[in-house]
Nucleic acid binder design. Sequence first.
DNA 1: ACCAAAAGGCTAATGTCATTAGCCATCCCT
DNA 2: AGGGATGGCTAATGACATTAGCCTTTTGGT
Lengths: 188, 188
Amino acid sequence: MPRAGLSPSSVVDAALAVIDERGAEALTLAAVAARTGVAAPSLYKHVGSLADLRVGVGVRIMDELTGRLGTAALGRSGDDAVTALMHECRAYVMQHPARYAAMPVDPLHNKELAAAGGRLLGVFLAVLRGYGMTETDAVHATRCLRAVVHGFATIQAAGGFGLPEDLDETYHRLVAMYVASLPRPERS
Amino acid sequence: MPRAGLSPSSVVDAALAVIDERGAEALTLAAVAARTGVAAPSLYKHVGSLADLRVGVGVRIMDELTGRLGTAALGRSGDDAVTALMHECRAYVMQHPARYAAMPVDPLHNKELAAAGGRLLGVFLAVLRGYGMTETDAVHATRCLRAVVHGFATIQAAGGFGLPEDLDETYHRLVAMYVASLPRPERS
DNA sequence: ACCAAAAGGCTAATGTCATTAGCCATCCCT
DNA sequence: AGGGATGGCTAATGACATTAGCCTTTTGGT
């Protein structure tokens, strides 16, 4: 009975692989167990439950996205930064559609997910801060941004749009619409 | 062994009741069977499978929404009509959050769902037609509208926003942002 | 090096669910 | 009355999550 060398983190790795290969709904302890070469109950030594694993996966995905967004926004500000963030979001979704679909929509119901969501939100808030909005306006602007990006991403990740050829154009218009709704950024 | 008087439609009714009471994830043949006072396998006399039932539920929900939107848009045109549609969408989601969550995001993968989706889309297209856009522009505008409404609705239905008190305000801003992105409607 | 305990695997068992097969009662039409 | 369609039922199967209890490997302290 040699050890498989698993850890909570490597189980999440395997879960992500399952999601990437077979879709978000295919995430099952049995599938992860098969992929890690272990019996299903053994996974309970590393994760509390399937729901738990989903949380871990969600955190991992959100943090991955947060990292990419941070990089994308580096050295930019104002409309430029907002545009970069929105396009990076879409790039992520196109690259990992199943991961995006696996992201929980209700991160607030779990402490770890809420924390990861907060980190993600932080990137957006940091960029919007440059517009010199009031706190209230920034909250509304962030929510709108989230709705726009999430709506488009969800529909696209699920293959909910028909003609896929000019989706880029649609997204550009969506980004332009959002950017146009922001106040002109403060000039230094 | 008295008859229960079920029909495909009444099974969908029961499914909607389950969804309303216990959430979209709680839709299970066992739950529907319990609610209709019938053994689970008996449901197969009326629906082909759980996936089938989900399709029926999705169609019902989309058509219900389509009906409400049609009514909301009656006698209106241009920005007024778009605003009314968007607010009616949100009103529906607030009234039946679980139903909205039960709506499939990928209606294209099924003929019946695609048809219902087409009917829903028709209402939006009809309203946008008044703006005298090219066909291409109308497609982009519809997609953007869908992304905006769906994004907000999804997040709200899942309880994904924090402070719920000024969500109305956020949505108003979102609607205003969208309306502002449309060309000025043609005057008669 | 030793040894106890912690850690990580395993098999067996349970419960929930969808789904299929095969049986029987009820209903409707003639 | 009677025969087929219709709609229920029970029993069985198979996927899955989860729990319990066992056994081996690893590891930390001496």
